[in-house]
Nucleic acid binder design. Structure first.
Lengths: 286, 286
DNA sequence: TGTATTCTGTAGTTATTATTACAGCGCAAG
DNA sequence: CTTGCGCTGTAATAATAACTACAGAATACA
């Protein structure tokens, strides 16, 4: 049994063969994501300003037995959409820019975050947060060509929340110095999405050999570093763009920052930092 | 007339005074975000394994006249939620981690992106994209303490897509050199969210005085730089964390990257870059 | 264990909804 | 014009849903 087409799409598809009254009806339906179709046929008829038989005729044209049958389909769709943490969005409807990049992007992004959260193991998240909150462990961060920005964002926060956080330079030539310190009391947080970078993998291997843990952020297909990682977070990255989207990854980073922060009770630390920033400008110049 | 409470909340509130069968029913309802409540009373009774009168009794307990009355309320709520580009999520339901940080975070993030997109003027977006695609204009990027990571992410992409892109150092002491070049053929892309940074504002003023354009990314309250900006994108940043979330800002960045990319037809440029990366490693070390 | 109280479903009734049949209307072609 | 065809609504009917009354079951308490 094949996947049923979405009612919304069925309507769009048949739009041409619909009569005037039927279009008035579909307009009403499409107008609020089909929710209007869940009323009784009488009420729907009133709000679309058509007669009840028109509704039944439309239902039949779309291939349903009758109105209740169509309603079931609509309800199933809505239920499915509500299940999504971030619903698939229809966003375009908000400013008539149906095919604007913003709409298509928003749709893709919500899909990405949805799927990523769906696959996320909350236990793993908690354990990773605990690991990153452990002040006895030093943290090192490293990203690839694109993801180094994400690594930096994470670093930027972690560094304020707790001591012992280091960002590795993007250039492999200076890695050896830090590598020396990455023993069993160190954790390397590494970002690697396609196209996966060999240098990162090589470093990962070395680091694990020295006993350090690895927390990996990668894409849906998975970096080769996965085999070395104690914790691995896969996020969906595809969007209608020549570039991958790291939004789902950023979501995880921000959530981890929030969690690590609350576990670390770093209020004092931050207060002290704020004071330093307030009193003097020299610290902002680094 | 005050705002009506959400059915979901009404149920939670009265949970204590509900009987066994009624709880079975509310469990079914809550289980799929109340969508089950849009079926006929008969079907709902079946799927919740209670009798139809139980349903009516619950409806009355919640303060409704009867089942259809309750249904109307549910439908209204769902309609409201579907209107959101990214729906408010109930995400917790996906793994029973009701109050897990991930759930609360996801809810906040969807709210933030929703609101931000709602306020986004697509025309402004397009015009900004056009500005950034204009190869006759040089681009400079700058962020604040936290947002410099975002600036860097944007820079990372723009730099590949087109020539004439410069990232300003975070340290004000080296700004003057770049400032010299920021004339009417330059655009400064600046990120400034709370706590707004005075240095950024001062630079913005200088830059505008020299005739350059400013594209500003800020938070919902708005940076003081707004008065100097040709384009201003406000994004919501509040999340259940000690830190602000820049996800909505990143959304815009990624969408702009996609748009600028497609306007710039930089296929050749990227192909050349890929080739260089493939042939030699030295370019990755900087 | 017995009794009172509350809960819950069955079955019957009423109200509403979904469907059908048909007739009027409007538009296009001759 | 007039004729014909398709669209649309009205009104009657069939189907289903919503509600009520009541009685059996479950539970709490003496």
């Amino acid at each position: 049994m094949g996947k049923k087409p979405l009612v919304k799409d069925q309507i769009r598809e048949k739009q041409d063969e619909l009569t005037a009254a039927e279009r008035r009806l579909t307009a009403t339906l499409l107008d609020d994501s089909l929710v209007a179709g869940l009323q009784s046929i009488t009420k729907l008829a009133e709000s679309a300003e058509v007669s009840t038989p028109t509704i039944i005729r439309l239902a039949r044209k779309l291939g349903y037995q009758g109105f209740p049958d169509l309603q079931d389909a609509i309800r199933d769709e809505i239920a499915a959409r509500m299940k999504e943490p971030l619903a698939k969005l229809e966003t375009a409807e908000l400013s008539a820019g149906k095919d604007h990049i913003i709409s298509r992007f928003a749709e893709a992004v919500s899909h990405n975050i949805n799927r990523s959260l769906e696959r996320l193991d909350l236990d793993e998240f908690d354990k990773a947060a605990a690991l990153l909150s452990d002040l006895n462990r030093r943290l090192y961060l490293l990203g690839g060509r694109i993801t180094r920005s994400n690594a930096h964002y994470f670093f930027n926060h972690l560094q304020i929340i707790r001591p012992g956080v280091t960002q590795l330079d993007f250039s492999p030539s200076v890695w050896p110095q830090s590598l020396l310190d990455m023993d069993e009391n160190a954790t390397l947080i590494v970002f690697d999405i396609r196209r996966y970078e060999k240098e990162l993998e090589r470093l990962a291997k070395l680091v694990v050999d020295q006993g350090a843990n690895i927390v990996l952020f990668t894409d849906q297909w998975g970096s080769p570093i996965e085999r070395y990682a104690s914790f691995c977070f896969r996020s969906m990255v595809e969007v209608p763009s020549s570039w991958d989207s790291t939004l789902a990854i950023n979501f995880l980073i921000e959530a981890l920052v929030a969690e690590v922060q609350s576990r670390s009770d770093s209020a004092d630390r931050i207060a002290a930092l704020e004071e330093m920033i307030g009193e003097s400008r020299i610290f902002r110049s680094n």
